[in-house]
């Protein structure tokens, strides 16, 4: 009954190259970033990797860089750093806002953006930002670097396009300077995972993405298209749950989730400046 992980080995990687080498040489190893998704699973013995490769000390994967056209956020940047970053607040304000709504301060001080995205939890907040803004994931493996669009990144429940021998090194967010945004997170208990969440990015390439409305984080495609086509908030909100297959749990059945998705979409659209 839980809370005590099985035995594992622990290795520290000082660089991406070293981490890749360790990944290749250990069977059944897992990368350890902030540990705030992985360690709970290990404690419940839902996963029992033989080796943890701690990448949290790799300097090249930390921090936010303004490359001109995009903001490049290192995979190991903690939620708290993203939340407080002036550059992020200026150029991808939706990201800073949502990073500040992840869990509680302890979680935000440990958890990393890369860990959150690679974990692929449909109930996590940050994947919706990547989807709504059209971010690009930068992944490194033995064969070199790959770039994956957010829309192609989330494959299945807790599964992403990052291969077992690869590392997510950075996320590139297109700048949305000055554009409106909205994020609505519905919870019963504060600081919890979203029962349903909706992210809206306004601007010339608007996007709407959903949290906890299926087995993977996903864009609200129909609603996003309607928005791009100039539909009004009510019409867009009505399409929010289109094509989704929402989960059912003690907090919400599928009907309620669909309803919440459209209510929250409307609110997020209004927050983003749409009328």
């Amino acid at each position: 009954m839980g809370m005590i992980p099985a035995r594992f080995d622990y290795r520290q990687a000082g660089s991406v190259a070293e981490a890749l080498q360790l990944l290749a040489s250990c069977d059944d190893a897992k990368l350890l970033a902030g540990g705030h998704s992985l360690v709970p699973l290990m404690k419940m013995r839902l996963v029992s990797p033989s080796t943890l490769i701690d990448i949290s000390g790799i300097a090249e994967l930390q921090g936010v860089t303004d490359t001109g056209s995009v903001l490049r956020v290192g995979a190991l940047t903690r939620h708290r750093v993203v939340e407080r970053s002036q550059v992020v607040a200026q150029h991808v304000p939706l990201l800073a806002h949502v990073a500040g709504l992840v869990g509680d301060p302890q979680v935000r001080n440990r958890g990393t953006i890369g860990g959150s995205l690679v974990h692929g939890d449909p109930a996590a907040d940050l994947p919706s930002v990547a989807l709504a803004t059209g971010a690009t994931m930068v992944v490194t493996g033995a064969a070199g670097e790959r770039r994956i669009a957010a829309a192609d990144f989330f494959v299945d429940f807790l599964e992403t396009a990052v291969g077992p021998d690869e590392i997510l090194t950075a996320i590139e967010f297109p700048k949305r300077t000055g554009a409106g945004f909205g994020y609505e997170k519905f919870v019963r208990r504060s600081m919890d995972y979203a029962i349903v969440g909706v992210a809206v990015q306004a601007g010339d390439q608007p996007g709407i993405a959903l949290v906890n409305m299926g087995s993977v984080p996903r864009r609200a495609d129909a609603a996003s298209q309607a928005l791009a086509g100039g539909a009004g908030v009510d019409a867009v909100a009505a399409l929010a749950a289109e094509g989704t297959n929402p989960p059912e749990d003690l907090n919400a059945n599928a009907d309620y989730r669909r309803h919440l998705a459209s209510v929250l979409t409307k609110r997020a659209l209004l927050a983003a400046g749409y009328r």
């Binding site: 509680d104 019963r188 208990r189 504060s190 919890d192 003690l250």
Partner: peptide, 26 residues
């Protein structure tokens, strides 16, 4: 918030603090 629930067969459905909602200060 709180409700310790069992399914029809007697398996607890709220056996972790993820599912059993102890409210937080806010």
């Amino acid at each position: 918030y709180e409700h310790m629930q069992y399914d029809e067969s007697g398996v607890p459905r709220t056996a972790t603090l993820m599912d059993y909602l102890v409210p937080a200060a806010p």
